[in-house]
Design a binder for these strands. Structure first.
Length: 844
RNA sequence: GCGGGAGUGUCGGAGUGGUCAAACGAGCAGGACUUAAGAUCCUGUAGCUUAGUGCUUGCGCAGGUUCGAAUCCUGUCUCCCGCACCA
């Protein structure tokens, strides 16, 4: 086999694509053409991969997989005649760059810029067909100024607001920590320092305003079922009753889904993280409460956020704990005085952060009551038996249906009926109302970090928090800051000092930056108009390109990014900038590619395969092909060098076919197979069954005869092109084409050329080969030598079997006679056994 | 605990009511070519049986629906993922 110089071929075509701007797309403008001659009045198609955080380590295999999946789809759609928007950009702001700055003393900006140019270089080597002219970088002020602009708009619409919220605080760093920086309740950099909880003023986005719409529209999305289910659970809508308890004469609304158990309330529990907790505590209990609060760990431990094994164990040990506050609440239905406890198991920002505890009918309340010896009062009796029947006490909460007992005027009602009646009663007395609660929280966007978009707010002693006027945007990140001493922006006094936009007196800038998820919540809109310096984007351009037709990325973003971007879309729609409700029509999650040992690729395990190394060794097209061959792209798979080698061999074979080919007429059999496979591959790519498409394409190339028509070869190459763009360009050129196969038309199957006959013929031949070898085997077992095979077919069937193919596959001399042939060689008269489609066999 | 998904040869993986379950790739075995190795090509790869036949077993396990089930239903086991005290 002649040595193929894949590297040279790749470089040649990557350069040509770039020089001739083959993948440059224009927005819809009538009668205009792109530099490559493609009219832009065709239907648009927007293919997008989730943009990467540009890490200093460069591209890893997960990136290569993600982008190859998208590139194949983009190339496919382009060939199908769509005006395809397929851009790339960088989610450059964020904590990792800042951590690198602290650890290796590189300024985040330098780190990020270096990483980005490395990414671009590597992505180009993978042959990805991005329109690089639309590249965006979220760390550039021309991008994040629009983050700030959106913030101002949200402030205007009362979607952005400020309130106190708990944060993780390390006293040694003098800094707020992200949840990822809290390990086992301690600071990641000071293992001896327990993380404390502080309540600071923080900015929030009121995503809960859109909770209902986010929930309702979920069903309409063409997204993976599991992602939709996750989002629904994340939003977590529940219906219930808000009941007003009085504490120190002040009204405390309590949310419950079980108003029918109101007579069973024996204590209240307020969240240990509740900002107003201290106001509830009596003098006598103050010390005990403070001790209790000290015991509790970080914010993340509260929430039980931990993904590792130890974290799970930790959670199991996280027993319900609490302490009496010394204070009481009044039950509105019977004016009973109910003790209030502070507890670690109550979520502070769900409902009002306090719950009515009904230990007889709620397992959590029961556990708590058991531990602290609190009263348990049964108010719902199941129909079939009595709860107290057995030994005068209960061993667990009864959460099922039943009739009310000991519930005043509501006694004897069925509990479901009682729910309605009690709620009605409370509404009438102005002591409650029907409410809907969501698990979804408002989005805390304040970060006490440097490498994010500065929040455009100025604090004035007189005017308070004043928004920066739009004309003053962007508020640029100052380059000169000190890392490792609390909030970096707070270390640049010169930057902080400013004038109040309202009263022009001395004022100070907000030193917090925005959560990095802000940047990725609308970037897909900016691709439609990336260089617009006057406005966030041109409405008409966005109207043309959006929504994203196909979005591709990891399932780990199901609940953060993929909800935030929906929220942003709805907000911008309400501002009048967008005329659609949902940003992403179709979503695809790629699987994870693990190491050959089945574990996640990790340096510590030594199972990392670097995609660029592989392309050097086996070529880019081989890698692309292999990545799609391991498994269906939505499934997890393990790296396997053999699959890699197999792909490499296949491509060499394709090249060899073209080296040796003779162009002539095509035969009906090849045409049939080709058209059948065109049909199958088209459907399989459309459905991301790339692995199956590849199987069919391999089958096609393996069956190509030595001599066939140019058209057959062209169509076959086109099918392979999305997977292996470089060698298909090269071979396309070899077929004397001057234009790019990248811009060629996707073949359409000609139904009339598809014939079942050839499949039957192939099947019959396979069966015959099997029969012959079976007989050969039996003969060999009997110790007889065989060198010749004679076949006897019924009249007219002789041409049904391909004698050359038989000779090749049997590896022995094969002769075919018609049974009616008088001159045939048939010493044992076996020819009389011949049946239709079943030749008689004689071997000697 | 709740929710979602998956269990098919030696392995990765196809096939989701019907003419043949295991396509395609890999491994292994045999053969051709070769001084040899590699590459390439051919054949085989559940069991028994046979001049190309026939039978049995078989899609995690156990039932069920059906003329017919890997595919639908019920139960059960195992694994993976997500959420996790949301009152």
């Amino acid at each position: 086999m002649a040595e193929v110089n894949f590297k040279a071929i790749e470089k040649k075509w990557q350069d040509k694509w770039e020089e001739e701007e083959v993948f440059h797309v224009l927005d819809f403008v009538k009668d205009k053409k792109t530099p490559n001659g493609v009219t832009s009045s065709r239907s648009k198609y927007y293919v997008l991969e989730m943009f990467p955080y540009p890490s200093g380590d460069g591209l890893h295999m997960g990136h290569a997989l993600n982008y190859t999946i998208g590139d194949i789809y983009a190339r496919f759609k382009r060939m199908q005649g769509f005006n395809v928007l397929y851009p790339m950009g960088y989610d450059a702001l964020g904590l990792p760059a800042e951590n690198a700055a602290i650890k290796v003393n590189i300024h985040p900006e330098n780190y990020t810029n270096k990483s980005i140019s490395n990414f671009i270089k590597q992505q180009k080597l993978l042959g990805l067909s991005y329109d690089w002219s639309r590249m965006i970088n979220t760390a550039s002020p021309s991008y994040y100024q629009w983050d700030q602009w959106i913030f101002l708009k949200m402030l205007e619409k009362k979607i952005a607001y400020r309130k106190k919220a708990p944060v993780n605080w390390c006293s040694k760093c003098k800094s707020v920590l992200a949840n990822e920086q809290v390990h086992d309740g301690k600071c990641w950099r000071h293992e001896d320092t327990k993380v404390e909880i502080k309540h600071l003023e923080q900015w929030f986005f009121k995503i809960t305003n859109y909770a209902d719409e986010l929930l309702d529209k979920t069903d309409e999305l063409d997204w993976p079922q599991r992602t939709k289910v996750m989002q629904k659970n994340w939003i977590g809508k529940s219906y219930g009753t808000e009941i007003i308890f009085k504490v120190n004469g002040k009204k405390w609304p309590i949310f419950t889904t079980r108003p029918d158990t109101i007579y069973g309330v024996t204590f209240m529990v307020v969240s240990a993280q509740h900002p107003e907790l201290r106001e509830l505590v009596s003098k006598e209990q103050k010390q005990k409460v403070e001790e209790f609060l000290k015991k509790l760990k970080s914010v993340s431990a509260y929430k039980g956020v931990s993904s590792n094994e130890e974290g799970k164990k930790e959670l199991e040990f996280l027993e319900k704990e609490g302490v009496f506050t010394g204070n009481y609440a009044i039950n509105p239905v019977n004016n009973e005085k109910i003790p209030i406890y502070a507890g670690n198991f109550v979520v502070a920002d769900y409902g009002s952060g306090m719950v009515m505890a009904v230990p007889a009918h709620d397992q959590r309340d029961f556990k708590f009551a058991e531990k602290y010896g609190l009263k348990i009062k049964v108010v719902i009796e199941p129909k079939e038996y009595k709860i107290y029947e057995r030994n005068g006490q209960i061993s667990e909460a009864y959460t099922g249906q039943g009739n009310l007992i000991d519930s005043g005027e509501f006694s004897d009602l069925e509990n479901e009926d009682a729910q309605k009646k009690i709620t009605k009663f409370l509404i009438k007395k102005k002591l409650g109302r029907e409410v809907v609660q969501y698990k979804l929280r408002d989005w805390l966007i304040s970060r006490q970090r440097y490498w994010g978009a500065p929040i455009p707010i100025i604090y004035c002693d007189k005017c308070g928090a004043v928004p920066v006027p739009e004309k003053d945007l962007p508020i640029m990140l100052p380059k000169k800051v000190t890392f490792g001493e609390g909030n970096p922006l707070a270390t640049n006094e010169e930057w902080i000092r400013t004038k109040c936009p309202k009263c022009k007196k001395e004022a100070r800038r907000e030193t917090d930056t925005m959560d990095t998820f802000v940047n990725s919540s609308w970037y897909f809109l900016r691709y439609c108009d990336p260089d617009n310096g006057k406005e966030i984007f041109d409405k008409e351009k966005v109207k043309y390109w959006m929504p994203i037709d196909q979005y591709i990325g990891g399932a780990e973003h199901a609940c953060m990014h993929l909800i935030y971007c929906r929220f942003y879309t709805k907000f911008l729609r309400d501002l009048g900038l967008l005329d659609f409700d949902e940003p992403v029509k179709k979503l695809f999650h790629q699987g994870m590619l693990h190491g050959s040992d089945g574990h996640v690729m990790a340096k510590s395990r030594g199972n990392v395969i670097n995609p660029l190394d592989v392309t050097t060794k086996y070529s880019t097209d081989s890698l692309r092909l292999a990545l799609m061959s391991f498994a269906s792209p939505n499934n997890d798979a393990n790296w396997d060098e053999k699959v890699m080698i197999g792909s490499y061999k296949f491509l060499n074979k394709v090249i060899e076919i073209f080296d040796n080919l003779k162009i002539g007429d095509s035969d009906a059999k090849t045409e049939s197979k080709l058209n059948k496979i065109i049909k199958e591959v088209t459907a399989q790519i459309e459905n991301f069954k790339y692995n199956l498409a590849i199987i069919k394409i391999r089958e096609l190339f393996n069956s190509l005869p030595e001599k066939t028509s140019k058209e057959v070869l062209e169509k076959s190459l086109k099918l392979l092109h999305p997977f292996c763009p470089h060698i298909t360009e090269e071979l396309w050129e070899k077929l004397e084409h001057k234009k790019f196969i990248s811009l060629a038309e996707w073949p359409i199957a000609e139904e009339k050329k598809i014939s079942e006959f050839f499949d039957k013929q192939d099947g019959a031949l396979n069966k015959l080969v099997l029969d012959i070898t079976n007989v050969l085997k039996i003969v060999a077992e009997k110790g007889r030598d065989a060198s010749k095979v004679y076949l006897y077919v019924l009249p007219g069937e002789k041409d049904f079997y391909d004698l050359d193919e038989l000779n090749k596959r049997i590896g022995k001399k094969v002769e075919i006679f018609e049974v009616s042939d008088k001159t045939k060689y048939d010493p044992k008269y076996v020819s009389k056994k011949a049946k239709s489609n079943r030749p008689a066999i004689y071997i000697e």
